[in-house]
Amino acid sequence: MKDWYLLYCKRSEQERAVINLDRQGVECYYPQVTVEKIVRGKRVTAFEPLFPSYMFVYFDPESISYTTVRSTRGVADFIRQGARPQTVNPDLIYSLMINEDSEEQQSKLSDLPKPGETLKLTQGQFKGIEAIYQEPDGEKRSFMLINLLGKPVKVSVQNEDLVKK
């Protein structure tokens, strides 16, 4: 009987794992989100994994063994509960598929400050320091440029720690 499982992939090798797993007849899914970032000085729109290094796979362990899937190039191992690979509720997978790149997800990313905008940090070790927004660092963090001892330093902070000046 087919089930969904969660795999941990080697760093930046999800695409390789998908190609190799597809050849073996294993259905793969990893949710992606559209992000804007600066590449070589130009703003580009790119797709990035919502869960970097993690992928959902759908297969029947009686047809394709766990060892075969785990030994595929790009795959590190299954996420396990004890000795057995952890199954994932199919409703979770289908809701991720439906909500992938939804307008709500895109609006979360567009709520971020614009690069170069001056902000004040409200919490954490840099509380009270003015910073210049640089770029997002994942879904909940951002890179900020702060002035420490007369030199600009790039730091990563929680998005909720920011307030616009």
Rank of each mutant, 00 (worst) to 15 (best):
K10C: 02
D91E: 13
E48G: 00
F47V: 01
E15V: 13
T68G: 00
P90T: 06
K37N: 06
L112V: 09
F51Y: 15
Q14F: 04
E135M: 09
G116M: 08
S107E: 15
E48R: 11
G124D: 11
S110L: 09
S63E: 13
Q125R: 13
P115L: 03
E135T: 12
E62A: 06
E27G: 00
E100W: 04
V18R: 10
T67G: 11
N20A: 05
D111K: 13
V39D: 09
D60M: 01
V75A: 01
E100Y: 04
T72L: 01
P90F: 05
Q24G: 01
Q86D: 03
G116D: 11
F47I: 02
R16H: 12
T67C: 04
Y30P: 05
R11H: 13
A17Q: 04
Q81L: 11
Y29V: 02
Y54G: 06
V26K: 01
Q106D: 13
E27Y: 12
Y66P: 03
A83W: 07
N89D: 14
P61T: 06
E13K: 14
R43I: 11
Q81C: 02
Y66Q: 01
V69C: 02
E15N: 15
V39L: 08
Q24Y: 06
Y58H: 15
I98Y: 13
G74R: 04
S107Q: 14
I64V: 11
G41H: 03
R84I: 09
V88Q: 04
L7Y: 08
Y5E: 01
K37S: 07
Y8M: 07
P113C: 05
F51G: 06
Y58E: 03
I79D: 05
I38W: 04
P61S: 09
K2T: 06
Y54Q: 07
Y54T: 07
S110Y: 10
M55H: 12
P113K: 06
V35N: 04
I132H: 05
Q14M: 13
R73I: 04
V44W: 00
V57G: 02
S102K: 00
D22N: 15
W4V: 06
S110N: 12
P113L: 07
S63A: 13
T118G: 00
V75E: 00
I93H: 04
I98R: 08
D77H: 10
K108W: 15
L92D: 07
Y66S: 00
L7M: 08
K37V: 08
V35Q: 09
P52E: 07
G82T: 05
T118Y: 12
E100T: 02
Y5H: 02
L7N: 03
E135W: 09
G128Q: 12
G138V: 10
K37A: 02
F56P: 04
M97E: 12
Y94G: 00
I132C: 09
Y5D: 05
D77K: 06
E139Y: 13
S71Y: 03
I64Y: 05
D3Q: 06
L119I: 14
T68K: 11
K120E: 15
T34R: 03
Q24E: 13
I132T: 15
V88A: 07
